[in-house]
Amino acid sequence: MKNKLTELLATKPSQLLNIFFTAGYPQIEDTNRILSALATAGVDLVEIGIPFSDPLADGPTIQESSKKALENGMSIERLLSQLEKQDLDLPVLLMGYLNPILQYGMKNFCKRCQEVGVDGLIIPDLPLQIYLNEFSGVFEEHSLSNIFLVTPQTSEQRIREIDRHSTGFIYAVSSASTTGSKNQFATATDYLKKLKDMQLETPILTGFNIKTQSDFKTACEYVDGAIIGSEFIRQISHGEPLEDKVKGYVQSIR
Rank of each mutant, 00 (worst) to 15 (best):
I170V: 08
E64T: 15
L94G: 10
T179N: 10
K247E: 13
L98N: 01
F216I: 00
C113N: 08
T179R: 03
T22K: 02
I210K: 11
Q184R: 15
N108Y: 07
G49H: 06
G117C: 03
A69H: 04
V150C: 03
P127E: 10
S143L: 09
Q157K: 15
D190Y: 14
K68Q: 12
G49D: 02
T6D: 06
L38H: 07
G120L: 01
E47K: 07
E134P: 07
D197M: 12
L132Y: 00
R234I: 04
L80N: 09
H165G: 08
T189Q: 14
R33V: 00
V246I: 01
L149F: 07
I19F: 05
S177Q: 13
Y249G: 05
I50Y: 07
P124C: 03
N3G: 12
F216L: 14
I130M: 14
A10S: 14
S81D: 15
E240T: 02
T40G: 12
F148N: 11
I162A: 09
Q103G: 11
V150G: 00
R160D: 01
L242E: 08
T6W: 03
I227V: 13
I76L: 13
Q153T: 15
K85M: 11
M198Y: 11
Q82H: 14
T151Q: 00
L126S: 01
A23I: 01
P26L: 07
V150E: 08
E29K: 10
R158L: 03
T212S: 15
E201R: 14
L132G: 05
E221L: 12
N99R: 02
D119W: 00
T179M: 06
Q251C: 05
C113F: 07
I147V: 01
L205E: 04
H142N: 15
A69N: 03
N32S: 12
